Amino acid sequence: MVAQSERVVSRGFKVGVWRAYMEVNHQVLTAIERALADRHRLSISEFDVLVNIPLAGTRLKDLKERVVLTQSALSRLFDRLAQRGLLARSPLEEDQRGAMITLTEEGRKLLRAAVRTNAEVVERTFAGKLTDDELRTLDALVARLKAPEVSEG
């Protein structure tokens, strides 16, 4: 007789675990999006852009590499945030087509508040439901999943 731990996990179980992970991810993101919209009038994409701009600023093309948006979507989002007075664009002397993107003082203030909101929601809907040991284990597992695949050959 094969011990429980030695049994091969079925494909159906694997897919079920993946589905559960996606559902948890959706629940947490939905809660974050709702809180950011209610408290700060920010979408999750706008928050993602703001949180990925270093204090010293960044080039728009470098920002594109840190967020999950197309170039045109990022440009439209930048325009909305600039109209709200949260971002500023300044030309780069060494690159006529490039621009440096910085947070305005109002943008930094909003970002600080939104980061606190994000952390509160993550704690309430995700991290607070796990022990410290469970979080460390999950962190190690996610790190394995994020590791690039090594091609054989």
Rank of each mutant, 00 (worst) to 15 (best):
114 A>T: 01
66 R>V: 00
75 S>K: 06
92 L>G: 04
133 D>Q: 15
12 G>S: 11
144 R>C: 04
53 I>P: 06
109 K>S: 08
124 R>G: 09
79 D>T: 15
90 S>I: 07
69 L>N: 03
5 S>G: 05
35 A>C: 10
122 V>N: 01
29 L>V: 01
34 R>M: 13
126 F>M: 12
9 V>R: 09
17 V>Y: 04
59 R>M: 07
108 R>N: 10
7 R>E: 02
131 T>D: 09
103 L>Y: 00
27 Q>N: 06
51 V>T: 07
53 I>H: 09
45 S>N: 14
84 R>I: 00
11 R>E: 07
45 S>I: 03
150 V>P: 01
79 D>M: 14
151 S>R: 14
133 D>F: 14
37 A>G: 05
140 A>E: 12
137 T>R: 13
143 A>N: 07
103 L>I: 08
54 P>A: 11
115 V>S: 07
69 L>I: 06
95 D>V: 11
16 G>V: 05
91 P>C: 04
76 R>I: 08
58 T>M: 01
76 R>E: 14
26 H>E: 13
4 Q>L: 15
83 Q>R: 15
55 L>H: 11
104 T>Y: 03
75 S>Q: 10
72 S>K: 09
31 A>S: 08
147 A>C: 06
89 R>K: 03
127 A>C: 02
144 R>W: 03
122 V>L: 13
118 N>H: 13
118 N>A: 04
94 E>L: 13
14 K>I: 11
87 L>D: 00
85 G>F: 03
42 L>N: 04
18 W>R: 06
150 V>E: 11
